[in-house]
């Protein structure tokens, strides 16, 4: 699982067309044709699809939660890193430096085994499910990346913009809120998309700590069926599913970028 966050996506039109073709046409076509050629295989697959789908819904859930949480925390941490007071700045800097370089798998293992399996809240025992721990692990990682993205974006805004707000009687926070951050959004979108896609991919690591997600479901299925061709086709389904999870993120980002560019 590569977390290529620092790379900016420079997908040319043709290569993105090839990707779309592979993801939305070639892989599904392979699955369908193979199932029809060997009907016994097709039958197995149809039986297992609901199970795989239930796993996949977990990937979607973890991705959405981790990205939302990580973005919120990351933006705050990024701004904290720029605070004029060291007691605000320093904790954020330490947090980011530690977690930015932590492998996703380590964080997921850590959160799984550090957090208890249930928590006591007002005398009630609430279960603390493993998938939530995976969310936290991925959110920590993405928040560290997004903190750096936010910090870089704020620093890239020319100081003359700050000067203009100052002259108009903005406070520092008002300047951030109304002038600086809105300009950061567009600049941060491509790297943010990279983080979001990485998190979507990273959800498959949750299978290693026993979360019932797509990879886990595919492993269960192939163990139960015990057919090589089924195993192959199950993982092709997994790949196509991850593609459909990441592709909309890329599309959405590009759409937003175009909208901002028009402005």
């Amino acid at each position: 699982m590569s977390m290529a966050v620092t790379q900016t996506p420079k997908t040319t039109k043709t290569s993105s067309r090839v990707l779309r073709y592979v993801g939305f046409v070639a892989m599904p076509l392979l699955v369908v044709v193979w199932s029809l050629v060997d009907l016994s295989l097709g039958k197995e697959l149809v039986e297992w699809i609901p199970y795989l789908a239930s796993g996949f819904s977990m990937n979607i859930l973890i991705t959405l939660c981790a990205v939302t949480l990580g973005t919120t925390a990351g933006v705050l941490l990024g701004l904290m890193q720029l605070a004029p007071f060291w007691f605000v700045r320093l904790p954020a800097q330490i947090y980011v430096q530690i977690f930015r370089n932590a492998p996703a798998l380590v964080l997921i293992f850590a959160t799984t085994y550090i957090f208890p399996f249930e928590i006591v809240l007002f005398g009630n025992y609430l279960p603390f499910p493993d998938w939530v721990k995976a969310v936290i692990g991925l959110a920590i990682l993405s928040s560290a990346y997004i903190a750096e993205i936010t910090r870089g974006a704020v620093l890239s805004i020319p100081t003359t913009q700050w000067e203009a707000t100052k002259g108009l009687g903005f406070s520092r926070l008002q300047a951030l809120r109304y002038v600086i951050l809105p300009q950061c959004v567009r600049r941060s979108l491509p790297p943010w998309m990279n983080v979001a896609s990485s998190m979507a991919m990273g959800t498959s690591l949750a299978s290693l700590v026993g979360v019932h997600e797509l990879m886990h479901a595919a492993t269960d299925a192939s163990t139960a069926v015990r057919r090589l061709d089924f195993t192959i086709i199950a993982y092709v389904v997994v790949m196509a599913a991850f593609f459909t999870l990441c592709y909309p993120i890329a599309r959405l980002t590009r759409r937003l970028e175009q909208r901002f560019n028009a402005g």
Binding site: T160, Q161, E163, A164, G167, V179, Q183, F260, G263
Partner: peptide
């Protein structure tokens, strides 16, 4: 105050 580099908000 008006500056040399007008500094309008580009967004």
């Amino acid at each position: 105050i008006v500056f040399q580099q007008y500094n309008l908000f580009p967004h």
